[in-house]
Amino acid sequence: MTSLAVSDHQAETATPAKVIQPVWVRMVHWINAFAMLLMIMSGWQIYNASPLFGFTFSRSITLGGWLGGALLWHFAAMWLLMVNGLVYLALGFATGRFRKKLLPITPGGVIADTKAALTFKLSHDDLSKYNSVQKLLYAGIITVGVVIVLSGLSMWKPVQLHWLVSLFGGYDIARYVHFTCMALIVAFLVIHVALALLVPKSLRAMIIGR
């Protein structure tokens, strides 16, 4: 984190070029990435204590060592994830970023851009503008992020927040919702990281802003 901040500062003073990712977006992005990683890896360890499906996660990719340790991590990192997520949502709406960047999403646009992407004809010349597939994926993953936090809260407090757990159809279903959201986030992460590596200047923009 420290090294990111330093290079950021240097870049800003050296070249006052067009900023693609404002500093607040970059900060919440990387804090979120870190918090998500902690949540997912500790979550896998928690899952292992009572698996929903016929498999468990290898201990080499889990965090916490045992259920108690994983719970400590999960219920600590959740604060980072939630506070950071709330800051992101608040600023996303307040600055108009969500409206400008993510809307409109049209079925036609998504289909056309998906075709273009699959035939490697999608343009990445202007990184400040998201194509329709990006808009859909980013809006989708934000929604999934909200649902995973709400389903997690409902399982954490099924009595105090019984209305929330009812909203998910009960405690047992909330567990599956929570797991499914995790799976969607991991799937998103795989695509997201792969594409960032495929278009390295997008990764650069998320680190130094331009």
Partner: peptide, 13 residues
């Protein structure tokens, strides 16, 4: 119980 093989970087952070 605190650490995990792949989380060493995260721990440092």
């Amino acid at each position: 119980f605190i650490t995990a093989g792949t989380s060493l970087g995260a721990l440092t952070l």
